[in-house]
């Protein structure tokens, strides 16, 4: 038990510290690297909570794909970040408002748990009891039965967003030569080669 507690506080402390470093680091690439560290430790917290599937999906999706693209973009950007930082103070009221809303919501949730014990009962019990099946199977059963419409709808939204991004950035360029592999493979000797008999002193 004590090992678990030590692990929890270790992961939690590193998550919070690297979260702070994400906004405090001067170099944007360091910020992204700290963000990755935060993801990683959050995955560790998931493992401690017994949610191994979520932990690994977090690593695969966020660390393995999203953060790579993030890092990719941040490295390629040529922005003077010191200059950008100058105007950061004007966003302070908006940031403070978002933070305040989050804080109030958290207080409401935890306050309800502490104040009214009947609130805790209204939280749905995990449908297939977690002890009987692996948590991959439990998640699958819940997602594809009870929440299947919500699940499919979120998939559709992501698809539309992806198509939108492609439509916005796609431009058909006519001034570049593109390789068409079908044409190349489909070339026959008869289409391109002609054997000419050249007689001496006459040329073609």
């Amino acid at each position: 038990m004590i090992v678990q507690a030590i692990c929890f506080y270790l992961f939690a402390a590193i998550t919070v510290a690297s979260g702070v470093m994400v906004i405090a680091a001067r170099n944007p690439v360091h910020s992204v690297l700290f963000l990755i560290l935060a993801f990683f430790n959050a995955a560790g917290l998931f493992v401690l909570a017994g949610a191994e599937f979520l932990a690994l999906i977090l690593v695969i999706v966020y660390v393995g794909a999203v953060a790579v693209l993030f890092l990719f973009v941040v490295m390629m950007l040529d922005i003077n970040f010191v200059e950008l930082r100058q105007g950061a103070l004007q966003y302070l009221p908006v940031g403070a408002l978002v933070g305040l809303v989050l804080l109030v919501e958290l207080i409401l949730v935890f306050g309800a748990w502490v104040a009214g014990p009947e609130v805790a009962q209204s939280i749905a019990a995990p449908l297939p009891l977690a002890t009987n099946v692996t948590n991959t199977a439990a998640l699958g059963q819940l997602l594809y039965t009870r929440y299947v419409y919500v699940f499919q709808a979120s998939g559709m939204i992501l698809l539309v967003a992806m198509v939108g991004a492609i439509v916005l950035t796609l431009r058909a360029r006519t001034d570049v030569r593109k390789q068409d592999i079908n044409v190349q493979v489909g070339r026959r000797r008869a289409d391109t080669l002609e054997i000419v008999k050249v007689r001496p002193r006459q040329g073609v």
Partner: peptide, 23 residues
Amino acid sequence: NVGILYLFAISSLGVYGIVMAGW
């Protein structure tokens, strides 16, 4: 239980070594 996901996760992290080195 999720061994194959673990392998997939680790192999997808390999890119960080290269990106960090290059940058």
